[in-house]
């Protein structure tokens, strides 16, 4: 079956990185690319048409003309890519960005969502009161892997050569692992199985830490080793520290160009969302695309 990739874009430079990766991936997998854009967020209590434009923040009323105009804008913005990518469609919606992204992903049954870190968050007040960022809410609820490209420099330029898979041994990490492995096989690249020992919450004696690191390395090998099958090009590592910092550090050190991790729901206290879950912090700091996987469905 042909794969479908949904690119959630704001049409602004913040999502150019995501767009580049999406078009590349579509090419690579010969997948269908859905260029998805939430044109506006409902403004008034029961507005039927008035939305606040995602980019200009202005109140506009949605009708065919407006939608056609938005579509035209998107076509211009991505003219070159669309030229090359024959198998693509533009989808427009109005609503709360995270919900519409999820809705489209569900109704189109896509295999992957690719988005910028801030896709849709611009209309601050209108997404306020609904806890969590767009990214977080998409990552939490999506059934397929969600790839986030924070910076343009974080977008890859071809294949992947080194994947860091960070696990916390949760059930969700199982799915993330499967995905990481399949990517590693697909791109025939190196893979680091990584766990970060969180020492931020309690004070541990150095010797305890050492012991833990050793036992965790063993655990990584025991849990994932047997699942590697034919694939041999991997190593295991456990570092101690603040998880997101360590994940970003090892990715840097190994010159990884993709990080895969589970979006663990335990991370999510929506109120604290702006301060960030591990996932969000990794996305903001990493120099490469980050994939979060939450469900077994699409890996």
């Amino acid at each position: 079956m042909k794969k479908k990739i949904l690119l959630a874009t704001t049409g602004s430079p913040a999502s150019f990185g995501a767009a580049r990766v999406a078009f590349e991936m579509a090419k690579r997998y010969d997948a269908e690319l859905l260029l998805f854009h939430v044109a506006g967020v409902p403004k008034k209590g029961f507005s039927y048409q008035e939305v606040s434009d995602v980019r200009s923040q202005e109140a506009v009323s949605v009708d065919e003309d407006y939608m056609a105009w938005v579509e035209e804008e998107l076509k211009t913005t991505y003219a070159k890519q669309l030229e090359e990518c024959k198998n693509s469609r533009i989808l427009l919606a109005t609503g709360l960005p995270h919900r519409e992204i999820l809705r489209a992903a569900r109704s189109e049954d896509v295999d992957m969502i690719i988005m910028g870190a801030h896709s849709g968050d611009s209309s601050a007040v209108y997404s306020k009161g609904y806890p969590g960022s767009t990214l977080q809410r998409v990552a939490k609820a999506a059934k397929c892997p969600v790839m986030t490209v924070h910076r343009e420099s974080a977008s890859y330029m071809g294949g992947f050569s080194h994947i860091v898979f960070a696990t916390d041994f949760s059930k969700q990490s199982e799915s993330a692992f499967k995905y990481a492995l399949s990517m590693a096989k697909e791109f025939d690249c190196e893979m680091t199985l990584f766990h970060a020992l969180d020492i931020t919450s309690k004070v541990l004696a150095q010797s305890d830490i050492e012991d833990k690191l050793i036992s965790l390395r063993k655990r990584l090998r025991d849990v994932y080793g047997p699942k590697m099958g034919e694939f041999k090009n991997f190593e295991v590592d456990v570092w101690e520290g603040n998880p997101y910092v360590e994940i970003v550090k090892i990715a840097r050190e190994r010159m990884a160009d993709l990080i895969v991790l589970a979006h663990n729901t335990r991370d999510l206290d929506p109120e604290q969302a702006s301060m960030g879950s591990t996932l969000e912090q990794v996305i903001l700091r990493a120099n490469c695309p980050v994939v979060s996987v939450n469900r077994p469905d699409k890996v």
Partner: peptide, 27 residues
């Protein structure tokens, strides 16, 4: 009321948050 208070923050920012009961209770 929720909408009105949201609009209130948009029109006259004063740094407030607002919530229904359901999400609060779930948390």
């Amino acid at each position: 009321c929720w909408d009105a208070i949201r609009d209130l923050e948009e029109e006259y920012p004063m740094g407030i948050r607002w919530s229904f009961l359901k999400p609060l209770v779930i948390k």
